[in-house]
Design a protein around this nucleic acid. Sequence first.
DNA 1: ACAAAAGTGTTGGAGATACACCCATGA
DNA 2: TCATGGGTGTATCTCCAACACTTTTGT
Lengths: 245, 245
Amino acid sequence: MMTKTPNAPNGDAASIPFDVSVDNVVFGFDGDILQVLLIRQGLPGEDMESDRFHMAVPGDLIYPAESLDQAAYRILSNLTSLEGIYLKQFHAFGAPGRVFEEKDREWLRRMRPHPERRVVTIGYYSLVAMAEYEPVPSSFASRAEWCPLADLPRLAFDHNAIVAAALEQLRADVQQENLIFELLPEKFTLGQFQRLHEIILDKELDKRNFRKNVKKMAEVVALDEKQEGVLHKPAQLYTYRKLED
Amino acid sequence: MMTKTPNAPNGDAASIPFDVSVDNVVFGFDGDILQVLLIRQGLPGEDMESDRFHMAVPGDLIYPAESLDQAAYRILSNLTSLEGIYLKQFHAFGAPGRVFEEKDREWLRRMRPHPERRVVTIGYYSLVAMAEYEPVPSSFASRAEWCPLADLPRLAFDHNAIVAAALEQLRADVQQENLIFELLPEKFTLGQFQRLHEIILDKELDKRNFRKNVKKMAEVVALDEKQEGVLHKPAQLYTYRKLED
DNA sequence: ACAAAAGTGTTGGAGATACACCCATGA
DNA sequence: TCATGGGTGTATCTCCAACACTTTTGT
């Protein structure tokens, strides 16, 4: 426990200060594909279309008096005006080499009071029904945008790895819990529901068997309403109702 | 994102320094019940039997140049002489009120260079076959001991909550992956194997059905050997062999 | 002899899988 | 009329749950 090593003597050097942040991978489903919410932040004095902007998953340092979960909620509610969004901590990222690009270091130097501090970030993911998403207006300095999961650009820091880990965790979690409804709008078709399953589980499902299973879910109830304005047979709409027991 | 609030203005107050630590919940199986490895640390100048000792899950601050995983491995190998132990990060704990007992504050004041810093800890759990566990000799200041999971004492900080969360995570993980063998000794009986399942899943299993399922696991192979010195019919011994594919 | 855990098969029901055609709409 | 996704039932197979008695050892 208390072994002294050259790398980490007791005393000050073994307790350098850290910054702790939260990064939130926001997944959205538009009825067709999964998307991720990204932040595009300009460096001060540069315009947003410059190729030196900073693209990242939304995140921020933790405030002195807030918990990790509170920080994650704060970040989310600064981006959307929604309440009660599902949110889950999934992994901490703290490798000493997390910040390795010169561009990222530059960004930290301009935006952070202690740009050289090692930073450990706590990864969260959230689930949003895109149809109900109301983005907060972009500021001059930053702008949120959806990006299809399939064609993410190169992100800041280790954020590509964070998104990949979030997706993997989501895949595992969906099989256990009722998370999947968080991604669906209030009214949805069985086609959308099946497509969402197929994307997340990453395999094709048999339509008839899938619908047979849905009929056994008491939480999914058919509405007295059909799709409109589609160029094929309009689908029955369904909704999710939490069971009261 | 950059909203100013009284609680967290930009600049220094929004980036107070943190300590980051790793706490490792080490689960062991002795063939009968699950146990947890605890550290009993004396305050300097007090003896180990004093009731003012500090009982906790093993943990330490992260060193400047190591990753989270490396820190977790270091903590583990300072306690056991084993290599290749299974270890998994499961949750970060960072509530501002994690340290609330006067006794814990006192301990920090004596042992830490920055006792007032807010500390975020990354929780890991590890799995150990107790039969093969070789404890490292206790120092004058600290001593590791197994404690049955069922009768944990009151632990330091929020360590009781950390152990509970680790157990919950272990329960979920076991159903997906092949973790359970990490808790078994090299040679084990089907009785032990079933008992371990029953403890972790927290439900009784049917002996015949259980054995039927084990027979379908290609990784579990019968040895040419039986238990000795037990006061009942000696059981066939089995072992786990990773499949090469 | 007794106590204590080891070991052993069958059956019925539920749930999973595989599979192909017609329907309603907008362009 | 064509393109597009919506909608529907049956037969088979696999997997899971339920269930009771005999065996081997040490004391």
